[in-house]
Design a protein around this nucleic acid. Sequence first.
DNA 1: CCGGTAAAGCAAGTTGCCTTGCGATACGGT
DNA 2: ACCGTATCGCAAGGCAACTTGCTTTACCGG
Lengths: 185, 185
Amino acid sequence: MRQAVLAATVDLLTSEGLTGTTVAAVARAAGVHETSVYRRWKTRENLLLDALGSHADEALPEPDTGDVRQDLTQLMSAVADYLASPQGAALLHLGASPDAGSVEAARLPYWDARLERGEDIVRRGVERGELAPDTDARLVAETLAGPLFARVLLTGASLDRGLARRIVDLTLDGARPRDGRAATG
Amino acid sequence: MRQAVLAATVDLLTSEGLTGTTVAAVARAAGVHETSVYRRWKTRENLLLDALGSHADEALPEPDTGDVRQDLTQLMSAVADYLASPQGAALLHLGASPDAGSVEAARLPYWDARLERGEDIVRRGVERGELAPDTDARLVAETLAGPLFARVLLTGASLDRGLARRIVDLTLDGARPRDGRAATG
DNA sequence: CCGGTAAAGCAAGTTGCCTTGCGATACGGT
DNA sequence: ACCGTATCGCAAGGCAACTTGCTTTACCGG
C-alpha cells in the first residue's frame, strides 16, 4: 500500500502539479482510504516530501574531475535539469512553503546538506589553487544555486544547462574585466 | 473601509506572519464582514499583495554614484533589509506560492521590473568600463538577488548587509584569484 | 422626499486539509 | 484455533479559503 500511494503521488504530482495533488485524489488513485494516508504520513507535506525526497538525492552527481569549472558546471547542470522537472519544481515549492511546524526544523539542515556538494567542489578548487585562498565556499555555493532556485520559485522562467554554465562562469570569473577570460577550462 | 482592511492586513502580517493572517481574522480586526473582503479582493492572495505591493517599491533606492560596486552594494543592502522584515518575507513567500491563476500571469513581469533596477546599475558599469563589455546585465542581477531570495524562502537563514556586500564582491570579482582584488572600490 | 444603484451585511454551502472514534480485517506467536 | 497488535475502512467533524443568493444599508440625483 505504501508503494501504491507513493507511486500515485508522484504520478499526480507530475501530471497535475502541486496544487492539483490533493490527498483525496492520491487516495482515490491508489485505491486507498484518505484516512489511511493521513495515518501513515500525518500531513500532506510529509507525503509529498516522502514521495519526492529519496528520488532527489540520487539525481545529483558529485563530480571530481580536477577542474573546478567543470565540476561546478556539471553539478549545476544536473541541478537545473532536476529543477526543470515537475518533481524538482514541486520539491522546491514545498521547501519554500511558509508552513512552520515539522518541516521548519528540517528545512535548514536539508538545504545545508544540498549545498555541501557545491562547497566540497569549491574547497577542492581552492586547495588546487584554482580559486582565491580566501574564497568562501558556502557563499559561492549559495550564489550558484540561488539564481536557479529564484527562477523556479519566483519568475517561473525556464532553466537550462546554458544558464547553469553562465552562472558558473560569472561566479568564477566575476563581471569585472580579466586578461585571460577562460583561464583553466 | 478599504484602508481599514489594508491596515489590519499589514498589522496581522507583521504580528502573526503569513499563515496566521486569515481573511476572517483580517475582517474581524477591521470590523468588517468576511464576505465584503472577498467581494473587493476576490482572493486572500490579492488582498495580501494589495497590502504589501505599493509599500515594497518605495523601499528600493536607485543608487547612481558612478561606482558599480557601491551602487550594487547599496541596492542589495536595501533588498536585504526589506527581505529581513516580516513584510518583505511575506511578499516573497506570496510570490513563490504555486497557486496559478491571476498571480501567475503577473509574476514574471513583476520580478522582471524589480530586476531592472540592478540591470541598470550593471549597464552603467559596463559603459564606464568597470565591467567586461560582454557582461550579461540580467544574469548579474539574478545572480545577486538569487541567494538572498533563496535564503528567505528555503533556509530561513538570516540576511544582513554584510552578506549583501560579499555577494556583490564575489559577483564582481569572481572566485578566481586576481592580482589587485579591490580594483575600483 | 423618493427611487435607484452600489456596497456591505448575513447565512448557508462547497472543497481541501486534517483529526478522531469505532469497527473490521489481517498477521504472527502460542 | 486463539489472542494481541497493527493496519485499514468508514463516518463524522473542525477549520480555513472561497462562493452564492438574498437582504439591508448608504449615498446620490431628481
